[in-house]
């Protein structure tokens, strides 16, 4: 489950972004920047503040993306690629410039939910986790509720399906999309922060390891629905945990093949989900 948290956070944000009709493949870079900032902040202020700092820097970086695609109407995939490069480059260069090969920072400890944690099997899996896990689960619930039961959710979904109608209703697509993009940025930044303060305790160059891209695949696999994304996240979380299991067992399966398995799995699964559920109709376009 620990491996699922960063994927779930990033995918949750990207889900909201894509429902608004925008694809942001730059979250890979935002994850990396979030991780570095969290590492620096955690040393002085502890892991909790570091998670917040990761989210904050995620908002800042995604704001650049928002300006480009919403205001300038730049091509979303190309702008996203640039943001991914920017984030990866900045985090790697920043890490060297700050000369921060310092010690490991303390990580977030798991919290047992009273009583529930003692349930057999599921108790440990669901109720003995670090707090960002609970935030993620609650966040998915809030996102689902917001999409279904608030005017904001209705407008957001309309932005992804028929932007002209949103404009016709006298609302600003730009504001909604920009907000969604920055929410997605906050989620990705927090996901990056969790890689450091929830898992590794240190920053390593390239530690985002394609998780931003995987999050995009999760959203597609989950057919742009909250339950679908939750299920896909669990599958990927399990696949990632498998790496550790394989290593622990000392099995002879080559390390790289285990690392590559989730990517191959996604490629094989994507065709199967075609037609089920619905993708936002204007995903990737400005919806003119």
């Amino acid at each position: 489950m620990r491996a699922a948290v960063p994927l779930g956070l990033a995918a949750m944000g990207e889900l909201v972004v894509q429902r608004a009709g925008v694809i942001n493949i730059g979250i890979e870079g935002i994850l990396a920047v979030g991780a570095l900032v969290a590492y620096v902040v955690a040393e002085s202020f502890g892991p909790g503040v570091a998670m917040g700092a990761g989210a904050a820097v995620g908002i800042v970086v995604s704001a650049v993306f928002a300006v480009l695609v919403v205001r300038v109407r730049a091509h979303q995939v190309i702008a996203g690629t640039a943001i991914a490069m920017l984030g990866l480059g900045l985090s790697a260069a920043g890490h060297r410039l700050l000369d921060h090969s310092g010690p490991a920072v303390s990580t977030i400890t798991a919290v047992d939910v009273p009583l529930l944690a003692d349930l057999p099997v599921l108790g440990r899996v669901l109720f003995a986790q670090q707090w960002p896990f609970y935030v993620m689960v609650a966040g998915l619930g809030v996102v689902a509720w917001t999409l279904r039961r608030t005017t904001l959710g209705v407008v957001l979904r309309a932005c992804g399906d028929a932007p002209a109608a949103v404009r016709g209703a006298g609302r600003s697509i730009d504001a909604v999309r920009a907000g969604a993009i920055m929410f997605g940025g906050a989620c990705a930044g927090a996901a990056g922060a969790f890689l450091v303060v929830g898992q590794a305790g240190v920053f390593v160059e390239g530690m985002s390891a394609g998780r931003g891209f995987i999050a995009i695949a999760i959203v597609a696999l989950g057919r742009w629905s909250v339950p679908g994304v939750a299920i896909a996240t669990v599958i990927f979380g399990l696949a990632s945990s498998l790496q550790f299991a394989v290593q622990a067992l000392g099995a002879t399966v080559p390390y790289n093949l285990v690392l590559g398995a989730p990517y191959a799995l996604t490629l094989l699964l994507l065709p199967l989900t075609r037609g089920a559920g619905s993708s936002p109709r204007v995903l990737g376009s400005h919806g003119e």
Binding site: R148, T150, T151, L152, G153, V154, R281
Partner: peptide
């Protein structure tokens, strides 16, 4: 027509009014 095909009738009505933060009922 300006209705959003993917939304329900009620959702299309809600699209046209109310603050963004209001509840959709």
């Amino acid at each position: 027509f300006s209705a959003v095909p993917a939304l329900t009738v009620a959702e299309n009505v809600a699209l046209g009014r109310g603050g963004l933060l209001s509840r959709f009922n």
